[in-house]
Design a protein around this nucleic acid. Sequence first.
DNA 1: CCAGTTGCGGAGCGAATCGCTCCGGTATAA
DNA 2: TTATACCGGAGCGATTCGCTCCGCAACTGG
Lengths: 223, 223
Amino acid sequence: MSDGRKRGRRQAEAERNDHALLRAAREVLAADGAHASVAAIAARAGVGIGSLYRRYRTKEELFQRLSELSLDQWNEAAEAGLAHEDPWAGLAGFVTACVEFGQGSLAPIAGTIDVTPEMWAKSARGDELLAAIVARARGAGVLRPEITPTDVSLLIEQLGSSPMLDQIRKQGREDLVEAAVAARRRLIAITLDGLRAVHRGPLPGPPPGEHLFTERWRRDSPA
Amino acid sequence: MSDGRKRGRRQAEAERNDHALLRAAREVLAADGAHASVAAIAARAGVGIGSLYRRYRTKEELFQRLSELSLDQWNEAAEAGLAHEDPWAGLAGFVTACVEFGQGSLAPIAGTIDVTPEMWAKSARGDELLAAIVARARGAGVLRPEITPTDVSLLIEQLGSSPMLDQIRKQGREDLVEAAVAARRRLIAITLDGLRAVHRGPLPGPPPGEHLFTERWRRDSPA
DNA sequence: CCAGTTGCGGAGCGAATCGCTCCGGTATAA
DNA sequence: TTATACCGGAGCGATTCGCTCCGCAACTGG
């Protein structure tokens, strides 16, 4: 009953398969959007469909697990950002990290799966961390003052799904991926520069409400 | 045989249906991505499937026509931008216009339809206009000098598909749409500020090649 | 060397959805 | 009224979906 270090070779393979499945799920979601099928995910992971369903009882359960891991990544990046001594570098690093590890690829499943208590908890933690990062940068005078945490969330979501990159990958043009990643890195940098506190004109309209973020994770209403 | 002003009521209805179909097609594409079905498009237009297929012989033909119209919108916005007396306002207006009329919603069909000669021609014209806008802004010293036309194209594409807005619409939360549009307008403004010429650090990496744009419209290779 | 056990891949099921055809019905024109 | 033009949508065959189930290979303890 000890679940300590010692594992059989079969268990080790199962564990590798699990990781491969989660990684594949994110990739296929990015490529196919809401369209993503379990068969495609299993194939991409180099694993049989049967193995997928031994690990997760349904497609929804797989996506819920994936969402949790994504929230963990967000929170780790946020803690790293807060830990950075320079408030601006901390914010910029956090945003860049979230964008680059594909935070946005989960957007298409928002509203199609139930939100587990774990997801809510991790999400709440993420909100706190983000608020702290933004507050610190603003306090240091390096962030233009009208920027809110929700602005930053939306910005991460906006940059996090790259139609260009997703489509290039879908077409299997691996030769273009490197250039696309580099091009997006420029866009991130441009956008971050737009966030910095220098003499600027005002932004249009009032800051966005955070309901733009939270409301969308409700299940589809029967209309 | 004269196709002058005088038309029957039935022809007028057919024409209205055509416009409704094109508008619906863009909306459904934004909401459902590559997934978009002709049934959904016809329903959204308030038109029978039969009417859609009387106007367009195939789904592909509808999408080709839609692409042409989108390129027309791009070109008109570009000409308006060039005509603006202030180079910066011209560029900013062009980018904003392209983003807001949903240029990005066509991204999911890139590579799934054949590119017609008309599309190539309009696209080439658009490239010229964009290059002129960018060159003029740079010449006036209002655009940070390392920005290329491809940077601007990618930026428009990136901002043009809003996961947030698309999903809100898909969920039928019309009450949130206004706030979402306003929130995106802030992001556009932030990003445009990032493009302006003021004292800044350098952008990471070399400028992106334009093949990132053109290559993706090839048909899916049989792999 | 041999059962016994464990996790594996994927054929295939019923249901849903796809692009598209075709026809009965209705408003307009003569 | 009859003839015509155009409409909506039922329904076709094909495809794809999430998921079940089972035969097989790989490892294990004796």
